[in-house]
Write a protein that binds this DNA or RNA. Structure first.
Length: 646
RNA sequence: CAGGGUGUAGCUCAGCUUGGUAGAGCGUCUGGUUUGGGACCAGAAGGUCGCAGGUUCAAGUCCUGUCUCCCUGACCA
C-alpha cells in the first residue's frame, strides 16, 4: 500500500505526538483502557521512524472531534458543503472561511502528500513563500490593477501596503532575480502548498470557492521552449504529473484545453473533475478525445456562402423599448437563431480601431477568437465612444461596414439563411428580410468582410478534430490549471541571466496550480449518495471504519484493539467508533463520513468468531466475514482500488 | 459590485401583520429502561432576539441606520 509514508507513532490508538519527539503515552498500550492516556517524555526513544514508516493510524472517535449533525445549516446547498458539515469535516467561520476539522485535515494531508510525491517525482522542489506580499511587487506587473478587488490588501502600522497572496508569480520571480545567476541552473521547477487569499466577489458552496483556500502552486524557469530543459518539456511533465495526481486521488477527471486567463501566457490546460453539478462547461469530441472549455473550444469546419437566395423584401419595423434579442425576435415573429447580432468591439491599441463581430442571434461572441481572427486583442467598445462614431448601439447591422471605417468579422453560422432579422442602424428600428448578397454586395465585392470562427462553441457543433462528429457538453469542476507563461513576469520584474553567448536573456516561465481544498469538495460532488460521502480510498481520512456495538464489554474492547492493531500493521488507517451510542446513529454516521470499508464488531459477531464487513459502495447491510481473514480482505481490497486509482 | 433574501437556543424554525412574562422540534446534560439502521420515560441546562440609535409607560415585534450570512450574475485553484 502506498499510503502513510510517515505515520506518527500510535500506541493505544491515540495519535498525539510526532514520531521524532520521543513522546510516549504512559498507558500500557492496551486498548481496553480508554481515557487514561498521559503523555510524558520517555527515556527510551520510540521505535525508529523507519520500522514504523508504513504503520497505519488508529483513531478513536471518543478522543477526537467529529461533530456530526443530522441537519445541516440552511446555508449549505451543494452536496459537498452539506456533507462536509454534516459529517463533521468543516465548520464555517465567515463567508468563504472555514475551520478544517480533524477528518478534513487528514484528507487534505493525503491529497497534499500525493501532490508532493508526484511533484517531487517530476523533478520539482518544495519551498514555502510568505502569504504577505508587498504591494510594490504587484505594481511592477500591473496585477494590482488586473486583479483589482480580488486582491486582499492591508496596511501595516507604518502605512505600508501589503497584499495577502492570491498566487505567487511576483514573489517567486523577484526571488529568482537574486537567486538565478547562471544559464547552467535551468530548468528549475519550484512549488509550494500554501493558503491563498482571494477576496472573491461571491464566495460560495463551502470549500468549492473560498476566500481562503489551500493551493499547490508551482513555477518553472527555462531559457528555451524546446529541448530537454525547455518549457515545453516541463509543461508536458506537469501534465503527466497532474494526470497521475488526480488518478491517484481516485477522481473521474478530464484534461481540457483552456484560455490562459489573467495570469497571461500562451498555452494552458485545465483539469476538471467530471460531475453534473460542476459550474464549468467543457466540450468534448467523443471520437478524437479532444476536450476544451467553452471559452477555448474550436469549432470544426462549417460550410458557408454569401449566395443564399433572398426570401422577400427588406422591411423596416418599429421596435421600441425592447431590451434583449428575445423580445425583439418575438415582436418580429421570428427566433434569435434567425437574427444577426452585431457586436461593436475595438482593438486594444493606443488609438483603437473599430471591429464589428457578427454572429447568429443565439450565439455568443468570443473575444479571444476575434483576436485570433484579426490579429489584435479586442474589447467591448465603450458605448459612448461607439455612439459618437455613428454606431446605433442596440440596432447595429452589418451594413455599418459601408459607412464606418472598420474590420468586420462574421461567423459562418451567420450566413446560413437568405433572410435575416437584424438592426436597422436607426434608433428603435429593426429590419427583416436581410440578405447578405443583396444588401451587402458592395462590401462583399470589395472583400471587406472576413469569415471566421468567432463564437463560443456549443454542444452539437462540429468537432474540430473528427469529420462528421459533433461536440458534446459536459459539466466539471476545475481543480488544476497549468500555464505556459512565457516571459510576461520575467520581463516585468526584470528576471534575466547571461546565456552561453554572454547575452542577456529573459527567462521563460510556466506555472502550475492545484486547488487542494477544492479537490476535496469536488471529490464529494463527484462521489456521494443520499446517505453521505463515498471516499476514494486514497484520500479518505481513514481507510476502515470500525463500528463497535456495546463498546463497554471487555471482550469487545479486546477484539477491537487486536483487530485495529493488525490493520494498522498493514498500513491501514482505522477510525474506531467507540462512542456509547446505539447502533442506529453509528451506522448512519459511518455512511455519512463514507470511509471505504466498514467493519462491525459486537458480542454477536464475536460469538461467531467473525466481523461484519461492508463496503461503502455496497447497498446491502453487510455480511459476516471470518475474523482470521478479514484483515487480508481489507488489504486486498484497498490495495486493489488504490492501485487502480480508485 | 448589482439584484433578491436572511439574522430569535448548538442546528432547523415559530413568534412580528395587531407592541404587554422568550417558544417548539432536534441536539446537549442527569437518572432510569433499552441496545443491529438516527429508542423510550422522567428531569435539567441553554437566548443582552445581529448591532446602534429612535418612537413608546412598554420593542423580538414599529421607524432609521449599520453589519452579517445566503442566493442569482461576471471572475477564478
Amino acid at each position: 500500500m502506498r499510503s502513510s509514508p510517515s505515520t506518527p507513532t500510535a500506541c493505544c490508538g491515540t495519535i498525539r505526538c510526532d514520531k521524532n519527539h520521543g513522546l510516549r503515552c504512559s498507558c500500557d498500550g492496551s486498548v481496553g483502557s480508554p481515557g487514561v492516556h498521559s503523555w510524558t517524555m520517555s527515556s527510551t526513544p520510540t521505535k525508529s521512524s523507519l520500522s514504523q514508516a508504513s504503520r497505519g493510524t488508529i483513531q478513536r472517535w471518543s478522543q477526537t472531534l467529529i461533530p456530526t449533525v443530522r441537519q445541516a445549516p440552511s446555508d449549505a446547498e451543494m452536496p459537498s458543503h452539506i456533507f462536509m458539515i454534516r459529517a463533521g469535516f468543516i465548520r464555517q467561520v465567515g463567508a468563504g472561511i472555514y475551520n478544517y476539522l480533524p477528518l478534513a485535515w487528514r484528507s487534505l494531508r493525503k491529497v497534499s502528500e500525493i501532490v508532493r510525491e508526484e511533484m517531487d517525482a517530476a523533478g520539482a522542489s518544495e519551498l514555502l513563500m510568505p502569504a504577505f506580499q508587498p504591494m510594490e511587487l504587484y505594481a511592477e506587473t500591473k496585477r494590482d490593477v488586473d486583479y483589482g478587488d480580488l486582491l486582499f490588501t492591508l496596511e501595516d502600522r507604518h502605512g505600508r501596503k501589503v497584499a495577502l497572496g492570491p498566487t505567487h508569480e511576483e514573489v517567486i520571480t523577484s526571488l529568482m532575480c537574486g537567486a538565478l545567476t547562471s544559464y547552467k541552473q535551468f530548468p528549475l521547477n519550484l512549488y509550494q502548498i500554501q493558503t491563498k487569499f482571494r477576496d472573491e466577489f461571491r464566495p460560495r458552496a463551502g470549500l468549492l470557492r473560498g476566500r481562503e483556500f489551500i493551493m499547490k502552486d508551482a513555477y518553472s524557469f527555462h531559457l528555451d521552449l524546446e529541448g530537454e530543459a525547455g518549457l515545453n518539456a516541463t509543461y508536458d511533465k506537469m501534465h503527466q504529473a497532474y494526470t497521475n495526481i488526480f488518478t491517484r486521488c481516485g477522481l473521474d477527471f478530464s484534461a481540457v484545453e483552456a484560455e490562459a486567463g489573467p495570469i497571461g501566457g500562451s498555452a494552458s490546460h485545465e483539469f476538471m473533475v467530471n460531475c453534473a453539478a460542476g459550474e464549468d462547461t467543457i466540450l468534448v469530441c467523443p471520437e478524437s478525445g479532444y476536450a476544451a472549455n467553452v471559452e477555448k473550444a474550436e469549432i470544426g469546419k462549417r460550410a458557408w456562402s454569401f449566395d443564399v437566395a433572398p426570401e422577400g423584401e427588406l422591411v423596416k419595423h418599429h421596435t421600441p423599448n425592447m431590451p434583449g434579442i428575445h423580445m425583439v425576435a418575438e415582436h418580429l415573429g421570428t427566433t434569435p437563431s434567425l437574427m444577426l447580432k452585431s457586436i461593436v468591439l475595438q482593438t486594444l491599441e493606443e488609438s483603437p480601431r473599430w471591429v464589428v463581430a457578427v454572429v447568429r442571434g443565439d450565439h455568443e461572441v468570443n473575444e479571444s477568437k476575434v483576436r485570433d481572427a484579426i490579429g489584435f486583442a479586442v474589447q467591448l467598445a465603450p458605448e459612448k465612444e461607439a455612439r459618437a462614431a455613428g454606431f446605433v448601439i442596440g440596432y447595429v447591422s452589418p451594413k455599418t461596414v459601408d459607412t464606418i471605417e472598420m474590420t468586420m468579422v462574421v461567423d459562418p453560422d451567420a450566413l446560413g439563411s437568405g433572410s435575416w432579422a437584424t438592426g436597422a442602424d436607426e434608433m428603435d428600428h429593426h429590419v427583416t428580410g436581410f440578405n447578405w448578397s443583396r444588401e451587402m454586395s458592395n462590401a462583399i465585392g470589395n472583400d471587406k468582410i472576413k469569415i471566421a470562427d468567432i463564437r463560443n462553441a456549443e454542444a452539437g457543433d462540429p468537432s474540430p478534430r473528427a469529420d462528421g462528429v459533433f461536440l458534446e457538453a459536459r459539466k466539471g469542476i476545475e481543480v488544476g490549471h497549468i500555464f505556459k507563461l512565457g516571459t510576461k513576469y520575467s520581463e516585468a520584474i526584470g528576471l534575466s541571466v547571461l546565456n552561453k553567448d554572454q547575452k542577456k536573456q529573459a527567462i521563460i516561465m510556466g506555472c502550475y496550480g492545484i486547488g487542494v481544498s477544492r479537490t476535496l469538495a469536488a471529490c464529494i460532488e463527484m462521489s456521494h449518495d443520499d446517505n453521505g460521502i463515498i471516499w476514494p480510498a486514497a484520500i479518505a481520512p481513514f481507510h476502515v471504519h470500525i463500528v463497535v456495538i456495546k463498546p463497554k464489554e471487555p471482550e469487545v474492547q479486546a477484539a477491537v484493539g487486536a483487530l485495529s492493531d493488525e490493520l494498522a500493521e498493514h498500513g491501514i488507517d482505522v477510525l474506531i467508533d467507540d462512542r456509547a451510542e446505539r447502533p442506529g446513529p453509528k451506522f448512519k454516521d459511518a455512511d455519512l463520513i463514507g470511509l471505504p470499508i466498514r467493519l462491525t464488531i459486537s458480542p454477536k459477531t464475536l460469538e461467531e468468531n467473525g466481523v461484519e464487513f461492508k463496503l461503502r459502495t455496497d447497498d446491502a447491510k453487510g455480511s459476516m466475514h471470518p475474523r482470521d481473514t478479514v484483515v487480508q480482505r481489507c488489504v486486498e481490497i484497498l490495495s486493489a482500488v488504490m492501485d487502480s486509482g480508485g
